[in-house]
Structures are given as C-alpha cells and as structure tokens.
C-alpha cells in the first residue's frame, strides 16, 4: 500500500515533468487549471497517468472538482481509490 507521501511525490514528479513547473511553483490547494499549469489535455494526461501508474481508471462521474480540483484533492482521491 502506497503512502500518501509516495502518491503525492509521484504525482508531483509527473506534473513537473510534463507541465514544466517546479515543485514550489504551484499551489497544492488550488486548481491546476486556474493556475495555468494545465490545459484541457493536461487533465487527460493526468487521468492517463493515474491509470498507468496506480491502476486507477477514473470513471466519468468521478471527474469533478472534489477529486480533481487541486493537487491535494487528486492525492486524496487516489488514496481513496487505491485503498478500495
């Protein structure tokens, strides 16, 4: 079972590697779209990464702000799904 920290580190590494930001350059509790970190394709890429890396296939009804509205929310969502 992955720790929250491990999930966060992997997700941050993916975001930084793919969207050319430094770990400290974006806020963990605000929308990545709002901060200009990702565009619409960015959401597709992140959900693809969740599937590949954590085996979490995101269902349409799960695609909402509660789960994707910030880095912290994405991490929490992944932890919930991995532990199911």
């Amino acid at each position: 079972m992955l720790s929250e920290k491990a999930v966060e580190d992997k997700l941050v590494a993916f975001i930084c590697g793919n969207f050319m930001v430094e770990p400290g350059e974006f806020k963990a509790d605000e929308s990545l779209v709002d901060q200009g970190v990702i565009d619409s394709i960015g959401l597709v890429e992140i959900s693809g990464f969740m599937d590949r890396e954590f085996g979490v296939a995101v269902a349409e009804k799960e695609m909402n702000r509660e789960n994707f509205g910030s880095l912290n929310k994405m991490v929490a969502f992944l932890i919930r799904r991995i532990s199911q």
């Binding site: 709002d34 619409s40 394709i41 959401l43 269902a59 695609m63 909402n64 994707f68």
Partner: peptide, 18 residues
C-alpha cells in the same frame, strides 16, 4: 477525440467548469 468519448467528457466538463 478527448471531447467526444465518455471519459473525455467528464474531464472536459471539469475543465470548463473552472
């Protein structure tokens, strides 16, 4: 493609919600 299929729709909805 990513606008048309079901999964893509959820993400695009999320995107435009912002």
């Amino acid at each position: 493609r990513h606008y048309a299929d079901e999964r893509g729709y959820g993400l695009m909805k999320l995107y435009y919600e912002d």
